[in-house]
Write a protein that binds this DNA or RNA. Structure first.
Lengths: 209, 209
DNA sequence: TAATGTGAAACCGTTCACAGCG
DNA sequence: CGCTGTGAACGGTTTCACATTA
């Protein structure tokens, strides 16, 4: 199946598989079947087998998957097997939380720079990172940073994105609302907490009075 | 078209439409066409028209949509036209950020309670909410709270979810990793920042050395 | 006339059933 | 024999083209 395009939905699931594999590994497990992994992740076994099949199949028939090998393969596919240096722009509530969030290291991300507009925040040190003025975003060019994290108010999102792109960033995680235009080769992932909340009540049973 | 099932993907887009409509409204605009709204949201015009058609069509042919009316309809469909009281469990980095996040009020959410395990945090007051001990989750039953927000370490997620469900919660926003089992009628929305980051490098052009 | 609303076609992803293999 | 890997059927979503209507 090497010649088929891999569905985006498959790519969306791979990190979940990886997380569970890392957990199984930490529990001292060696092997897992598609059924076992499925229970952990919360999807169907055939979905897992199909997803893996896009990359050629990693299992042993009659046995299952070798956890360590599979985890390594997942990381390679997702390109998480190297350190991905990231720069954060915006030190508001959300920006600070992201900087303090330790869950990213496990997947190879390292936030090596933080930028702010507000002069009062520039110079402060948080989680080992010294906050710089936004005008310094251009200096990222020489720092091996290709991932940008945007957590600024909506009005300046496009501007910040353009600055990041100009500094060589080609992947963006955007916590701010608002659609931005970027070159086709640049990937933007939007995390929009309010939008996720906003579709919850639709699915909830009517709250009786 | 009232008798067709509405696609989940449509429901996922409605809040985005709503946000843009509210913004247009704040700019003093009265009407918008599917093309105009499409540009703002970043989707195709026919997608928007199709989405609206599931609910019967809100536009005037040859003119477009009345922004205020449409926004009101969106809110009604999403059930955001009433106050949704929510309870937060877990006052770590992420929990605090969510509590401080002001973007939820606009959509009718009000975080009226916060719970923590750690006795040192119990009693502190943040953003107008006094932190209570997790054992008090059961008291939610009488407080008109139907939305639970989980931001606790992975080991205790299921336990916290069960407590919330026992207290009458029937919609959960979960920031913690790990699959949880809940009754079918309960909706769980998972926001998993690390998983969103983890699929970014796959889509990024190769970082040359 | 300019924009909506909508069947039908095309596309994509999921599910199934079972062949293939260790 | 058990579990993986996969072509084919299925179902849901997007796209299209155009009839419709203020």
């Amino acid at each position: 199946m090497r010649y088929h395009k891999v569905p985006d939905e498959t790519i969306r699931r791979l990190p979940k598989y990886l997380r569970c594999l890392l957990w199984l590994e930490s529990q001292g497990e060696r092997n897992v079947s598609s059924v076992g992994l499925a229970k952990l992740v919360g999807v169907n076994p055939w979905q897992i087998r199909k997803d893996f099949s896009y990359f050629g199949g990693f299992g042993k028939r009659g046995v299952g998957y070798a956890i360590e090998t599979l985890a390594t393969e997942m990381k390679k596919i997702l390109r998480l097997n190297v350190v991905n240096k990231a720069a954060l722009v915006g030190m508001g509530n959300l920006g600070r939380a992201v900087l303090a969030f330790s869950g990213l290291e496990k997947y190879g991300f390292e936030i090596v720079a933080a930028f702010e507009n507000d002069p009062k925040k520039v110079g402060e040190r948080t989680c080992g990172v010294v906050v710089e003025d936004v005008s310094k975003i251009r200096t990222l060019k020489d720092r091996g940073v290709y991932v940008g994290i945007i957590a600024v108010p909506r009005g300046v999102v496009q501007e910040v994105a353009d600055d990041l792109l100009g500094a060589g960033v080609n992947g963006i995680v955007k916590f701010s609302p608002g659609y931005i235009t970027v070159p086709k080769k640049v990937k933007v992932i939007t995390i929009d907490i309010a939008m996720d909340f906003a579709r919850l009540p639709y699915y909830m049973p009517r709250n009786l009075p």
